[in-house]
Design a protein around this nucleic acid. Structure first.
Lengths: 128, 128
DNA sequence: CGGAATCCAACGTGATACTG
DNA sequence: CAGTATCACGTTGGATTCCG
């Protein structure tokens, strides 16, 4: 095989900015990572413990994407054992501002959404 | 067959509200639909034309999910030919408020993100 | 310690065809 | 007009294994 498929053919231009943003941080872990880093700079395994369920593999991929998009920075210290620190960039920090509003909304309205789902499900079961 | 697999085993309780919200509106079309309905009530095929690329199949599924979660309402008029109107609910409207902030952020910072990606890609190509 | 390579399963998306 | 059923496909997440 001539082409390794480790290099993703990254789409550099996206017509829709919000689509572009949601595609990246709308995944399972990105937001959790950003919030963890909002409190303080963390090393790889610290993040791993902090987040909990994520595999190292996925954590690594997600971090690379976030770094690529400029949300976080990655600093390698030439030590033994190696030390790598992840931190929010200015972009990452500024992103969390509007995002916090949305998070707040989600918390405030989560119950209403759950209620709506239960109602709908009850209706569906009646029909059957 | 005893069990039709049209009924999705919907997760009624989600531990993380924001995860729960993003999972629903973070897909390809939900947000576009909500924004279209923010301007005015629309019928199924009007929405279909408005959104553009989406297939009727996917549009239908997405609408059902949004209705399930209480973001939109679906009104059927007993006419011939049938008429079905979709509109934002109060929940849907209130959701768009914090969401608009995020959309604004995405538009403001989209260029910075694209720049960051290009830089990273240039670095990657140097390494190779 | 901090990853990368590989493989696989699950899910979302979409095309097509059919229905009330 | 407003959908649903079925199937195929690509992308993502995750487990496992190996490396500097």
């Amino acid at each position: 095989m001539s082409s390794s498929h480790t290099e993703d053919p990254i789409e550099l231009e996206q017509p829709c900015p919000i689509r572009d943003v949601l595609d990246r941080i709308g995944d399972q872990w990105s937001l959790l990572i950003l919030e963890a880093l909002a409190l303080r700079t963390l090393r790889f395994n610290e993040l791993h413990r902090e987040i909990g369920d994520v595999s190292r593999q996925v954590l690594s991929r997600t971090l690379k994407r976030l770094e690529n998009d400029g949300y976080i920075s990655r600093t390698v210290y030439a030590e033994v054992p190696p030390r790598v620190e992840y931190a929010l960039t200015g972009l990452g920090r500024s992103f969390l501002e509007p995002m916090q509003k949305l998070i707040q909304w989600a918390e405030d309205n989560h119950e209403a959404i759950c209620r709506s789902r239960k109602q709908r499900q009850a209706l569906r079961e009646q029909v059957q």
